[in-house]
Simulated assay, not measured.
Amino acid sequence: MPDTTPDPSTVLPALPALSAQAERLIELGVHEIAGLSADEIRAFAAQAAAGPEAGAVGDGALLAVHPDRAPASALAPLLRRDGRPGFVVVDMADVDAFTPCAVELPDAPLYMVSGVDRGDHMSNWSPDEALPALTEEDRTPLVLTEGIHWVLQQPEALERNLCFMTIGSRLRKPDGTLDARTPAIWISNGTGRDGRERRNAPKVGWCWWNNRHTWLGFASTTGRRG
């Protein structure tokens, strides 16, 4: 497997303050999708920023809405790049059926995700290779909606040749086995069924569990708190 040492040149700046993230979600109407009021979003962000664990979890953390409240299909179109809205690939109509797998989310409509990393040092790894390596690092992979929230708050987290998978979301088939598709977020080239009008748009798609891609890392977190 490739070297696991992170490249310091790919380190992203800190996320906006939680209060700014709350306003961003309100501006996009995410609170309405989630059935929450703007005041509820603001109050959670304020409490999280001022709480006893704020330094350990809240500083630089990502504000996320639980996927049960705001599914990927509703969040993806809110993404923007070069003026083009985000989209879900046509052969992933079941995107919202990709639910947390081996990842425990807080039982709350709003929560924080700490220590988010794009996993550039795992580019050209397969999900099957990356998952145990993340576990050894005491990290868990992001679920798809967390990845979308990250790009909503920090669009520069998605770059050409530096995009990421969100393997914390999997689709369990009726027989109990896991679908081999694994969700990822990258930038469309405007080819094939994407359509030329979607060139450079943020794209929610999938890759096979055992395949490697030089341009996809594995987004992960050090923890979550509601």
Rank of each mutant, 00 (worst) to 15 (best):
S114V: 07
V88S: 06
P100Y: 01
H121F: 11
N124Q: 12
G51K: 06
D117E: 14
N211P: 00
S114F: 05
I167L: 10
M122Q: 11
N210Y: 11
R69V: 02
E129C: 03
S19C: 07
E23Q: 13
A76N: 03
T99Y: 01
L152S: 03
W209V: 15
T214S: 15
T5P: 00
L18I: 00
N189I: 04
E23H: 12
H213Q: 11
R199K: 15
I26P: 07
T166S: 13
G51I: 08
L105P: 06
Y111N: 03
T140W: 05
S114P: 06
P8D: 10
T191L: 14
E27M: 05
D120K: 08
W150N: 06
Q47H: 11
W150F: 12
D107S: 14
V57E: 11
A157V: 09
F218C: 09
R160D: 13
A70Q: 04
H31N: 15
I185N: 00
L78G: 01
L28I: 12
T182I: 14
M122S: 06
S37H: 05
E129P: 06
F44N: 02
V204Y: 01
G35W: 07
L171F: 12
A133W: 08
P100D: 04
A102L: 14
I185Q: 00
N200S: 14
V30A: 13
N124C: 10
N211C: 12
P6E: 02
A72C: 08
A17M: 09
A38G: 15
D175P: 02
A45G: 09
D68H: 12
D68V: 11
G176M: 04
H213P: 00
G60C: 09
E27L: 09
A20G: 07
T191H: 08
F87S: 04
V88G: 09
A48R: 00
K173S: 09
T10W: 12
A49V: 08
G147P: 00
V151E: 03
V65R: 04
R42I: 05
A70S: 11
T222N: 07
S73C: 02
P77H: 08
D117N: 11
R69F: 14
G51L: 02
L12N: 08
H31P: 12
S188T: 06
G226W: 07
A17P: 00
E27T: 14
